[in-house]
Design a binder for these strands. Structure first.
Length: 434
RNA sequence: GGAGGUAUCGCCUAGUGGUAUGGCACAGGUUUGCUAAACCUGCGUCCGAAAGGACUCGUGGGUUCGAUCCCCACUACCUCCGCCA
């Protein structure tokens, strides 16, 4: 949400920004409604003032009569105000945030700009298999029974892939905790205001699962609950920035992508993700630094797994409404012979915090809206695609990235899991878990 | 699912149909000074340069000239019972 003051002061900029994000906004109507609103508030305040002045004891007949009149007038004006509010809020809620100057202007993903590349693209002296083939031949997942049981895009992860998923998420979680991020496991069932507040709504309503008739939805990312964690609160400047590493199951309807990525684990309705979320002070330079820090974390994780990646700066047309700057991290997926998205790193300014009413008190006693940021740390099973495909061997087996070996207890995936000798220390010191 | 209870500033707390009390914590200042104390001031939100005004006692309605207080609904939390990973 942008402030009305900001829209008033930067009208053309806001209109241009919306256009660059392929959105239509009714700025003139918004400003007219705002004028009306201010006038109504003013009138109501004058009447209330009159009413308040008379109420310091028992009033006489005349005052009571006037009081009744005031009551009627206020009611009329308040009705108008509430109508005004509704239309204004609706229009306002559709105004997207204004990107920073450094963001390239573009229509869609074709206009995103590659700003960094890391890693050596692996070369194979045999025919590269897809994660789908690898997984099926090694019994790592079951998509047929997945859709039988769960529906379209349903899946079971099995055997070493199931272990790997836990290990990957745990590795990343621990890594960020070590960097000082507060570990948090967030609810996936959230109220509507969190989705509006984080800017998924009103644009992405068809993307989100709604539960029955209650005010309950399934969040598509921990960004939603964790950014809303401090909603309605005023934080202390000295406690900022608040950095979280959050785990949550994620649910997405993928309503707009029926034909896309139908095979395999790339696009699923349900997955697990470790997300980084930061609530910071209202300093854009600090936010840019934090944005780079988040990006560095994500890239380090890919480097730990030794998977080639590239970083894209998203253009205006591909960046989403709340964001003012966004990087996507894409990793190498050998079978598609190209990169696939793995992480998305955004600065929102005060767009979300204004909707969620998250402020902080500065040293001088004044309050301001915080700035918020978030970046994926790791999503799974999507990351498994890259691991399976990049680490596949000629004999059909799959090596396990070194940093994960001690967590899963095996160095390669060669056959269906029946029994494995752990190679790591265990509670009983003999390689056994009980 | 059933029965009761609670909701007032960051925390604790008083309160009544006439417009929110005190303490702790916090911030600034003064003075004295050995990890500090005493005193003064400020300390819910919004608009405003200020004066000032409006809003605010979980949320939303209602009654009333006037509601933190009375009525209704909702939400969250607590206690007990039941069920349950």
């Amino acid at each position: 949400m942008l402030s009305l003051d900001f829209i008033r002061a930067n009208k053309s900029q806001v209109i241009t920004a919306a256009k660059n994000k392929n959105r239509k906004v009714e700025i003139d109507k918004i400003l007219t409604l705002d004028d009306e609103r201010r006038l109504l508030i003013q009138k109501i305040q004058v009447l209330r003032e009159e009413r308040n002045k008379t109420s310091h004891g028992k009033p006489d007949e005349k005052t009571i009569k006037r009081g009744k009149e005031i009551k009627e007038e206020i009611k009329k004006l308040e009705d108008q105000l509430s109508t005004n509010h509704q239309s204004l809020d609706t229009l306002l809620s559709f105004v997207p945030n204004v990107p920073l100057d450094e963001v390239p202007i573009g229509k869609n993903e074709d206009d995103n700009v590659e700003v960094k590349k890391w890693g050596k693209i692996p070369e194979f002296d045999f025919e590269v298999k897809s994660h789908l083939d690898l997984g099926l031949s090694l019994d790592l997942f079951d998509l047929e029974r997945g859709s039988k049981v769960s529906g379209f895009r349903g899946y079971f992860l099995k055997n070493q892939a199931a272990q790997l998923q836990f290990a990957i998420l745990f590795y990343v979680f621990q890594k960020l905790v070590a960097k000082g991020y507060t570990p948090i496991i967030a609810p996936s069932i959230v109220k509507g205001f969190t989705l509006f507040g984080s800017g998924q709504f009103p644009w992405g309503e068809q993307e989100v699962y709604k539960l029955n008739d209650e005010d309950a939805y399934l969040a598509g990312t921990a960004e939603v609950p964790v950014t809303s964690y401090f909603s309605g609160e005023i934080l202390n400047e000295k406690d900022l920035p608040k950095k979280f590493v959050a785990f949550s199951p994620c649910f997405r309807r993928e309503a707009g992508s029926y034909g896309k990525d139908v095979k395999g684990l790339y696009r699923v309705h349900e997955f697990w993700k470790v997300e980084q979320v930061i609530i910071a002070g209202s300093d854009i330079e600090e936010s840019k630094k934090l944005h780079n820090e988040l990006q560095k974390n994500t890239e380090e994780i890919m480097e730990d797994f030794n998977i080639p990646y590239r970083r894209l700066m998203m253009c205006t047309g591909d960046m989403g409404e709340p964001q003012i700057k966004k990087y996507d991290t894409e990793i190498w997926m050998p079978y598609r012979n190209g990169y696939g998205e793995i992480a998305s790193n955004s600065i929102m300014g005060d767009f979300q915090t204004r909707r969620l009413k998250i402020k902080y008190r500065k040293k001088d006693g004044s309050t301001e809206y915080c700035y918020s940021l978030n970046d994926t740390a790791i999503p799974s099973p999507r990351i498994l695609i890259a691991i399976l495909e990049n680490y596949q061997q000629k004999d059909g087996s799959i090596k396990v990235p070194e940093v994960l070996q001690s967590l899963v207890g095996f160095k390669s995936i060669t056959h269906t899991l029946t029994h494995q000798e752990p190679i790591f220390s265990s509670p009983d010191g003999q390689g056994r878990y009980r």
